[in-house]
Simulated assay, not measured.
Amino acid sequence: METRHWTYYDRADLKKWSGRIDGTTEEHLRWHQIIHCIDLRDELDLSGSYVLLGFACDEGVLRNLGRPGAAKGPEILKQTLANLPVFRNKKTKLIDAGTIHCKDKQLENSQDALGFVIHLIIQRGGFPIVLGGGHEITFGHYLGLKANYKNKLGIINFDAHFDIRKPQHEIPTSGTGFYQIAQLEKQLNYLPIGIQKISNTQVLFDTAREYQINWIESQDFRDRNKKVILDQIDAFISGIDHLYLTIDLDVFAASYAPGVSAAAFYGIVPDAFFLDIYTHIIASEKLVSIDIAELNPEYDYDNHTAKLAADLLFRLVIA
């Protein structure tokens, strides 16, 4: 193991998992009552487990001139997840594997550490659920997946932004992740959903076309287009071997997700149509990991955004 990566890692703390207790028998249980907190430096078998990992970082957001605060996202999201119910028919195994922190503005090193830890989780049989943190989470997450999966890896990104900007002076940000991935891949297998014209410059659309990326714009993400959207998603998944799903919470309208690094007034509504699409994606047998990006508690109202993120992860775990 490369010890330098552990500089950015903190083990999980069971004291941070607390909540309501209605009883201790199976039908009463909530996540905080069944979660196992571990130290990844121990050689543990994670087979069959959903493994939560925090990425407490918003240095990429700051470099991208966004509003800070997402570094606090993982802790708040874990607090929100704590009270979710457990359903006895699922036999759910939940593990908190701790948190990667971005220390001293060392974004690149923290991304390397994130990749290293995700690699370990997958090697040991776990399914990574990574909690951000800014969308600089993408590149680190990708590094960990690429270390395990040598066949074609595809990424679906719910996001108002392409995040395919070329780094200025070779300095990565929260908006450069997919450009960085493209430099390491012969072909970028990438499907962005929820793109907004108001949030992306012409050069970003041009770059997407250059890399032969097909995308779904927010204005077209409507129930009347459901068959076309599902066909596009299915065609994308059929062309890859492994699927990584990343959800930037700024894809949602600000009334539903105010607590993000770059709020969008308009955006996707997390209604029954969205949930049908989301459920269809997470049902894929090719799905190997997921992350939630850009939860910014500094701007959240009554934990609306954290509760939305928790709901999405709840649906994954009980699916």
Rank of each mutant, 00 (worst) to 15 (best):
254 A>D: 05
245 L>P: 04
242 H>Q: 09
278 Y>I: 07
261 S>N: 10
271 D>S: 00
226 K>R: 14
235 A>D: 15
219 Q>V: 13
248 D>H: 05
241 D>Q: 11
264 A>G: 15
236 F>L: 06
215 W>C: 06
253 A>R: 09
247 I>Q: 01
274 F>C: 02
292 I>H: 04
261 S>F: 08
291 D>T: 03
222 R>H: 13
259 G>F: 01
285 E>Y: 01
238 S>E: 15
231 D>P: 10
262 A>Q: 05
245 L>S: 07
217 E>I: 12
248 D>I: 06
223 D>A: 10
236 F>W: 05
274 F>W: 04
248 D>W: 07
250 D>W: 08
261 S>H: 05
251 V>N: 03
289 S>I: 14
261 S>E: 09
293 A>G: 02
289 S>W: 03
263 A>N: 03
265 F>T: 13
238 S>T: 10
279 T>S: 13
280 H>E: 06
233 I>E: 06
281 I>H: 09
280 H>G: 05
224 R>T: 12
215 W>I: 12
273 F>Q: 02
269 V>C: 10
268 I>L: 15
216 I>L: 13
290 I>A: 11
233 I>T: 09
266 Y>N: 14
246 T>D: 07
251 V>L: 04
272 A>Q: 11
224 R>V: 14
236 F>E: 07
236 F>P: 08
282 I>Q: 09
294 E>T: 06
269 V>R: 11
277 I>D: 01
283 A>E: 11
251 V>A: 12
283 A>V: 04
222 R>N: 11
232 Q>P: 01
253 A>Y: 04
274 F>Q: 05
227 K>R: 03
270 P>W: 01
271 D>R: 01
271 D>K: 00
256 Y>A: 01
242 H>I: 00
270 P>F: 00
237 I>D: 01
288 V>N: 08
217 E>M: 13
253 A>G: 08
285 E>V: 14
